[in-house]
Amino acid sequence: MQRQNFRCMHRLRVRWAEVDMQKIVFNAHYLMYIDTAMSEYWRALALPYEASMHILGGEMYVKKATVEYHASAKLDDTLDVGMRCARIGNSSCVFEAAIYCGDRLLVTGELIYVFADPATQTSTPVPAALRAILEGYEAGAEMVEVRTGDWNALGRDAARLRTAVFVREQGIPADAEADALDTSARHAVLYNRLGQPVATGRLLQQAP
């Protein structure tokens, strides 16, 4: 596997708790590195996982995970973990991973996920929308659409995002988060391919 084959690449550093008596990374941690990169892959798709799966009507379950070791990582090494969707079947998706230290390939892995009904955990077909997102991402397509407008057009989605980030996550008082400038500002909201608003900002004009 070549680094250029991966559009999604996540960087991390080996920590003290991840090495063994031989002072190399304990074998099980490589699978954790791959799983961490899988979370970054969903981020690259602009899909907030829980909310997106709710829209899609299912969940992704790991059916099989395999890891092949080629070389070892050591304490304080900087690793790049590549992740890509290699194949999409009727109800399953095959993801390939590769872990590099510089240009040296250390580990390759394969994860098979099955899309399933969370209530029964029985497999169901991969939704067409998810299939299109995965195929589009691997083909180099943009994962978000930027819409700009005034508060009347975008205020509802912008306010929802700002409340989630500033009020709920950061604890800013709700009455301090919004101000009178919203009505005159130019707003931008990013939407993912499921139509979910995922980011927002505003441009203020201080003078004509």
Score class of each variant (00 low, 15 high):
Leu31Ala: 14
Asn192Tyr: 00
Leu190Val: 00
Ala17Lys: 13
Lys23Glu: 03
Asp150His: 07
Phe115Cys: 07
Asp20Met: 03
Val67Ala: 15
Gly109Pro: 06
Ser123Val: 01
Arg104Pro: 01
Thr108Trp: 06
Ala116Thr: 03
Tyr49Ile: 07
Phe26Ile: 00
Ala65His: 12
Ala188Gly: 06
Val114Trp: 04
Met21Gln: 14
Glu142Cys: 08
Gly140Glu: 11
Gln170Thr: 07
Phe166His: 10
Ala17Gln: 10
Thr78Ala: 14
Ala129Val: 02
Thr200Gln: 05
Leu79His: 07
Met9Phe: 08
Asn152Gly: 15
Leu111Arg: 12
Leu204Gly: 01
Glu68Cys: 08
Asn152Tyr: 02
Arg7Asp: 03
Asn192Ile: 00
Phe6Pro: 06
Cys93Trp: 01
Asp76Val: 03
Leu79Cys: 06
Glu145His: 07
Val144Thr: 15
Leu194Ala: 02
Gly89Tyr: 04
Ala129Asn: 05
Trp16Tyr: 13
Leu47Glu: 03
Pro125Ala: 09
Leu134Ser: 10
Gly140Ser: 13
Leu154Lys: 02
Tyr100Ile: 01
Glu138Pro: 11
Leu45Phe: 04
Ile172Phe: 12
Met1Phe: 10
Gln2Met: 11
Leu134His: 13
Asp20Ala: 03
Ala199Pro: 00
Met32Glu: 15
Asn192Thr: 00
Leu181Cys: 04
Ala37Ser: 15
Ala86Arg: 15
Met53Lys: 09
Asp150Ser: 09
Leu194Gln: 00
Ala65Ser: 15
Trp16Thr: 03
Thr148Phe: 02
Ile34Met: 15
Ala158Phe: 12
Ala65Lys: 12
Trp42Met: 14
Gly171Leu: 07
Ile24Phe: 08
Met143Gln: 15
Gln2Asp: 14
Cys85Phe: 05
Gly195Asp: 00
Glu177Leu: 11
Arg87Glu: 15
Leu106Val: 01
Thr124Met: 13
Phe115Asn: 08
Met143Cys: 14
Gly136Pro: 12
Leu111Phe: 15
Arg162Gln: 12
Asp157Arg: 06
Lys23Gln: 13
Pro125Tyr: 05
Ala141Tyr: 10
Leu130Arg: 09
Asn90Thr: 10
Asp77Ala: 06
Asn152Ile: 09
Asn152Ala: 14
Phe115Tyr: 10
Asn192Trp: 00
Glu110Ile: 09
Val126Lys: 08
Asp179Ala: 06
Thr124Val: 14
Met21Lys: 12
